[in-house]
Amino acid sequence: MANLQLAKNLRKYRKARGYTQDKLSKYLNISRQAYSNYERANRDPDIGLLIRLCELYNVSMEELIIKPFNQTYIIHESGDYHFAIEGKSNDSIILMQDEIDLILKYRDSSSDTRAMIHTLLDSANASH
Rank of each mutant, 00 (worst) to 15 (best):
N3W: 04
N3V: 06
L4P: 04
L6T: 02
K8V: 03
N9Q: 05
K15S: 11
K15Q: 15
A16P: 04
A16S: 15
R17D: 05
K23F: 03
S25G: 08
S25T: 10
S25P: 04
Y27G: 03
L28I: 09
Q33H: 06
A34Q: 14
Y35A: 04
D46K: 13
D46Y: 09
G48C: 04
L50E: 01
I51Q: 10
R52D: 06
L53E: 00
E55M: 05
L56H: 02
N58Q: 14
M61E: 01
E63P: 00
L64I: 05
I65W: 01
P68F: 03
F69S: 02
N70R: 15
Q71A: 13
T72S: 15
T72Y: 09
T72W: 04
I74E: 04
I74W: 00
I74D: 02
I75W: 04
E77S: 14
Y81C: 06
F83P: 01
I85W: 03
K88T: 13
K88L: 09
N90P: 00
D91Y: 13
I93F: 15
I94Y: 14
I94S: 10
L95Q: 10
L95G: 03
M96G: 07
M96F: 13
I100K: 13
I100A: 07
D101I: 09
D101L: 12
D101K: 14
L102I: 08
K105S: 12
K105F: 07
D108M: 13
D108C: 12
T113S: 08
I117F: 12
I117H: 03
H118G: 00
T119R: 13
N125M: 14
N125Y: 15
